[in-house]
């Protein structure tokens, strides 16, 4: 089955340039193409016409790397639940449909070109405390440190975050709380993460605020749009970690 679609895509030459939505007609699109394959077809046509192709982020195309983005018809990663853009197929759209594609919008995610945004703010948040300090050397025996099954499961669920930024894109406040909470939770739930948990909560929240992300108003749009189904229970855990580190512990903020 094929379909004809009209695309409205955000085109912006570089970070400083003014951008605008540009319309493209794309015919004979297979319903079994992925969304990114559809974009590839469009780009081939643009290149053959001598126009600049649409810049968009993509890497693994398997839904695990978190590189693809795009705000499609008013939704981060498009209309499909628990899915990245690369795992979205054209069968989710109808023949003759107009599809509007915009970059993720946030002060913390400045547009670089067309649909590509700079998400290095997330890297800086991780660098601020999203790690554990471990001595190098021989790997420890497995099971040397007992971990409760439920905690291990919750940590694994939090660690499923691929850092794509859909939570920021979907949030009306462009808040990065779901991302930061997933990273903090993943380590706070495990014994290996405990020695640095206070320092970590303080430093990562400070970096998140410094990057210009908004605050969380608990609309839970992030959880609904997250391709990995990260729970807002992690946000409550981050609140606990931060309140504990700020008000109860003797740890001083930097």
């Amino acid at each position: 089955m094929t379909m004809n679609i009209k695309l409205r895509i955000w085109r912006q030459a570089n970070a400083q340039a003014e951008g605008k939505l540009v319309e493209y007609q794309l015919n004979d699109v297979s319903a079994n193409m992925s969304f990114l394959e559809m974009m590839d077809v469009l780009n081939e046509q643009l290149i053959s016409k001598g126009e600049a192709p649409v810049a968009f982020d993509h890497d693994c195309r398997e839904g695990i790397c978190g590189t693809c983005s795009m705000y499609i018809n008013g939704r981060a990663h498009g209309p499909q639940k628990l899915s990245t853009t690369c795992q979205l197929y054209m069968r989710n759209f109808t023949d003759g449909e107009t599809i509007t594609i915009e970059p993720f919008r946030a002060k913390g995610f400045p547009v670089l070109k067309d649909l590509c945004v700079d998400r290095s703010a997330f890297d800086r948040i991780i660098a601020a405390g999203g790690y554990i300090s471990a001595s190098t050397g021989q790997a420890q025996d497995a099971n040397a440190i007992p971990v409760e099954k439920a905690a291990a499961d919750s940590a694994m669920d939090a660690a499923a975050c691929i850092g794509c930024g859909a939570c920021v894109a979907a949030c009306k406040n462009a808040s990065a709380m779901l991302f930061v909470s997933a990273k903090v939770s993943h380590l706070a739930l495990l014994p290996q993460g405990h020695p640095e948990r206070k320092k970590r909560a303080l430093a990562m929240v400070a970096q998140m605020d410094a990057e210009g992300f908004g605050s969380c108003t608990n609309t839970y749009a992030c959880e609904a749009e997250c391709p990995k189904g990260i729970s807002v229970a992690n946000i409550a855990r981050l609140n606990r970690e931060f309140l504990n580190a700020s008000l109860i512990s003797e740890e001083m903020p930097k």
């Binding site: 705000y71 915009e102 913390g108 210009g212």
Partner: peptide, 14 residues
């Protein structure tokens, strides 16, 4: 935190 908004947004979905 979001200087430029979206042209199309469907917040009711989430």
């Amino acid at each position: 935190a979001r200087p430029q908004g979206y042209a199309v947004s469907n917040p009711g979905a989430n």
